[in-house]
Design a protein around this nucleic acid. Structure first.
Length: 285
DNA sequence: AAGACTGTCAACCGCTCCATC
DNA sequence: TGATGGAGCGGTTGACAGTCT
């Protein structure tokens, strides 16, 4: 494939400012359209910036535009809010970077993916939390009280819960909470609750296209009368993960003993966040 | 000072999805 | 209804910068 492209005279590797200019000029003039034929069109256009051929495949052009040239892109360090949103959404959606990116305005899926892999994933691993499942690793070293690692988790969880309360604009978070609430609701009054339902067109339960519908929890989600089981397998799994974190509350909510350090991790301090979490009192849920 | 190591991120690759014919 | 091709996605790579020894 690459050889074929090279034979066709198409270039790969880092983009030059000149190439960026040509691509921008073309998009400004013609708008976004057929990526595959764009380089040919750009090359044939008698615009100011097309004296030279844009020797890139359409795919490369699309990527360059989406990840770098788009004018609405927000570049630079992720804010605390953004990071927490990513963690929250990842717990629910997994590696669906494009879906996660859709909830972070002006950030690209590639950027989020990179951030996850280079920052968050590493931190989770250090905390003894499996970054894939968001569950504590079973073989992670803990103190004899079993409390310390959980304390770190608790602080992360505390921050996470904070964003749950703050990030009301993130509809997936809201919807997720709605499901969690719905699963344990005993009231018959469901009129104001958001409920997941099948995609209207396909009839499938699709996490990418979660839509609030009216109706009854039992009809749309539950398996028989069992409120602990959802008809969406992936949602069940994610919900289990969510609950597994909460299940530890009775352990880590207890007062922390002094000098309670993680064995084998002397440098593993109160928390290893890049950001500050106020204090340990905030742990209680 | 220099080589080794590590972290970051832009870009690529291969695959799937989906629209069109 | 199957074939085809374009768009988009997620995993991976590699270049480069920064840090360590």
């Amino acid at each position: 494939m690459a050889d074929c492209r090279e034979k066709m005279g198409l270039k790969k590797g880092p983009w030059t400012p000149d190439e960026d200019q040509k691509l921008l000029a073309y998009i400004e003039e013609h708008g976004l359209g057929n990526w595959r034929t764009l380089p040919e069109k750009a090359a044939n256009t008698h615009s100011l910036y097309t004296f030279c051929w844009l020797q890139r495949c359409g795919k490369s052009c699309r990527l360059r535009w989406i990840n770098y040239l788009r004018p609405d892109l927000k570049r630079g360090k992720f804010s605390l809010q953004e990071e927490q949103t990513i963690i929250q959404l990842h717990a629910f959606l997994g590696n669906r970077w494009s879906t996660i990116a859709a909830h972070l305005p002006n950030r690209t899926d590639n950027e989020i993916k990179n951030y996850w892999n280079t920052h968050v994933k590493k931190r989770f691993t250090k905390m003894g939390i499996d970054p894939t499942t968001h569950k504590p690793k079973s073989n992670h070293v803990v103190s004899p009280t079993g409390r310390t690692t959980l304390n770190h988790m608790a602080q992360w969880e505390s921050a996470r819960l904070e964003v749950v309360t703050k990030a009301q604009s993130v509809d997936v978070v809201k919807a997720w909470q709605s499901v969690v609430a719905g699963m344990f609701a005993t009231s018959t009054n469901n009129s104001n609750r958001i409920i997941f339902g099948p995609d209207q067109s396909s009839g499938n339960y699709e996490l990418d296209s979660i839509i609030p519908i009216g109706g009854n929890v039992e009809d749309e989600l539950m398996v028989g009368n069992d409120r602990s089981k959802c008809q969406v397998p992936e949602l069940n799994e994610r919900f289990d993960n969510y609950m597994s974190l909460h299940d530890t509350t009775h352990l880590w909510a207890a007062p922390i003993a002094e000098n309670d350090v993680v064995e084998g991790f002397p440098d593993f301090l109160v928390h290893d966040f890049d950001y500050q979490i106020d204090n340990e009192e905030s742990i209680t849920v």
